[in-house]
Nucleic acid binder design. Structure first.
Lengths: 202, 202
DNA sequence: CGGAGGGTTGATTCCCCTCAAAATCAGTGG
DNA sequence: CCACTGATTTTGAGGGGAATCAACCCTCCG
């Protein structure tokens, strides 16, 4: 969908399916920045900076509406409210990246996993694709590893631990919260950063 | 300057001095999101979300221009170009956080340190506070540790390594690039994400 | 002169990586 | 229906990078 270093990209609004954005290092390893789910806006930086600084790739089959560069920039000058809305979306995005940063910097593997899957759960619930019980999740352990800065092997062990602790089960594409409250406590999860009221229009 | 959980903040444009933004975890540990230097805009999320999701604290004595919430939101609707400029600034900010994320996820301690100090160098050069030789840097090893997701002790060891390898010297508040090219190579540093042309105005 | 903050170094521990190999599963074609 | 392939999950063994704990030093400052 978007390729690092290339120019002339569009932005997209995801209608269905999952995608992921990531960066590749010279060493060949990959760091996943985040996952995009239905309702998400992606590619803003690719438009503003003209040349994309990251990649976006579908994980499942994705349907998305294309938002062309010209349209977006025109719309900004013509409809300030839209500009504010996009700014707000970008800020929510940044808040998620920041929380992800905290994950990698100051949480151990299990807390990281728990926090990450909780966040994903809240986001999916906001678009009606999950509930307090759990959700369907097409992510492989390799993808989780590249997102959480772990090895795939260790992802597997951590998932086993969480399962044996009776907090969370992730198997066969399904995340099940076995003990939601314990999990929230364990991960130090505060959903405030996902709950802001939408653009502060005036 | 800004306190997590509090409402009614302003944004600021730093005129002189250094600040840092960070999050605190229940465990008491701290993850520094980034450092603000002269010319940087900070506190946008605190305004858009009404309640701040992070803290900002001065490191040295800071002089900054306050940008009040009302002013900013009014200006958006009245001056679309300004909105685009702010959006652009926010995106550059996010690009830096993303690169920081890659640091924590996929680089070892030494590469992380090198990459971080190189980025800081480029940013400082853009505002005339450093050159290819190096720059003045008021950050303690504790601050570096909390930014890079390391312990202060290990920060010290890594700095010693880099010094003994003849790549970089950080002592007495001065960063000196002993071998800039080697350092860039070692860190896998690409400055593209800092070099975009400024707001794409129309 | 005592105390605090920051820097430096050593010893030990442990979290997570790497390497390696089964086991399971989905799809594919004979 | 089964053999074959490739992707994914699972488990084990061993090693290493960074944390932790614990000193000791220096400088600055009231």
């Amino acid at each position: 969908m978007i390729h690092q270093g290339q120019v002339g990209h569009s932005a997209y609004i995801v209608a269905s399916g999952w995608a992921c954005s990531y960066k590749l290092l010279p060493s060949g390893s990959r760091q996943i920045i985040g996952f995009q789910i239905p309702g998400d806006f992606l590619g803003l930086r690719a438009i503003l900076f003209r040349t994309a600084d990251h990649n976006v790739e579908p994980i499942t089959r994705v349907q998305a509406s294309e938002v062309k560069e010209d349209f977006l920039l025109d719309a900004f000058t013509r409809t300030p409210r839209l500009a504010t809305a996009v700014l707000w979306a970008a800020s929510r995005d940044e808040a998620m990246v920041v929380e992800h940063l905290v994950d990698l910097g100051r949480r151990n593997a299990a807390e990281r996993m728990a926090h990450f899957l909780l966040e994903l759960g809240v986001r999916l619930r906001l678009v009606g694709m999950g509930d307090r019980e759990g959700y369907l999740c097409p992510l492989s352990q390799y993808l989780l590893a590249d997102a959480l800065g772990l090895s795939a092997v260790h992802v597997n062990r951590v998932l086993r631990e969480l399962r044996e602790e009776g907090m969370l089960t992730f198997q066969k594409g399904k995340v099940v919260f076995d003990d939601y409250d314990a999990l929230v406590e364990f991960a130090g999860f505060h959903r405030a950063y996902l709950d802001h009221d939408g653009p502060l229009l005036r």
